[in-house]
Design a protein around this nucleic acid. Sequence first.
DNA 1: CTAGGTGCAAAAGGTTTGCGGTTAA
DNA 2: TTAACCGCAAACCTTTTGCACCTAG
Lengths: 146, 146
Amino acid sequence: MATKTDTDLLYEKAISRCGLRFTSQRRCVFDVLLNKRDHPTATEVFRRAKSRISSISLATVYNCLETLVECGLARQVHIDREPTRYCPNLLEHGHFVCSVCGEVWDIEVPSGGGAGMPYRLPEDATVISADVTLHGLCPRCNAGKN
Amino acid sequence: MATKTDTDLLYEKAISRCGLRFTSQRRCVFDVLLNKRDHPTATEVFRRAKSRISSISLATVYNCLETLVECGLARQVHIDREPTRYCPNLLEHGHFVCSVCGEVWDIEVPSGGGAGMPYRLPEDATVISADVTLHGLCPRCNAGKN
DNA sequence: CTAGGTGCAAAAGGTTTGCGGTTAA
DNA sequence: TTAACCGCAAACCTTTTGCACCTAG
């Protein structure tokens, strides 16, 4: 295997903490995810990974992505019922999806007050996590309308 | 066909406005959805509809649900990548999903300020709609923990 | 060395579609 | 009457799984 990068060391540490192995496929998939943070689907990650490891299989990409999620190094992003996307941004955040170009942007959520605070809940409910996805026109596509 | 109810008239009006036909299957599916507002999946709607029209098919239920959505009488609810659920609540609202019992509750969103206002967007973006799903413990399951 | 990971192919599960027969308007 | 709709079955697409071989530790 080639020299380990800082990214590799981060991943290797996280993955061994989970009692898992640091394989070249996992390294590749993680690198693909960090390299271009555009919320790719598993199929897109597969396409990019295959250009580096031509023998890699789609099932392995799914497995590696699941491993990344398990290790806490990535999160799944669900937009309607479209194919699952993957996001290496570990901070609490939501997503903005452009209805024209389809691009996905990370958006900030209010830091104080906890998840979902702007919403009125049934009494005595406890919120664990919040999934927020906004649909609309991104700056680029908005500009194109003028 | 049996006597038309108020619900039927509402649906018939909406459906003819869309240039579509008021069939017994569509009537049945809409009625099932309004009858128990528990965010059923297409399969569950199929099960309930079949108890009234035994010959109805799953594909027809999917088609009827799609028609309802097109006519603006129901909305799809996406929770992660679970099967799509259907909701006849037309007001702007989000969903709270209990991690224990799986029940889905409608939750209010802030009325003033528009969709997604608590979130910091990329500049010059326009929000069209907001999907908000909170995960946590519902009052009933929360109480069971004590 | 060996438990865990990979590649392949097949299966699973939700949803959509094509087609011949049926029906609301 | 006839275009739209229904039921059925097959197709579709994403994701998961079983299995024989391989490899990191």
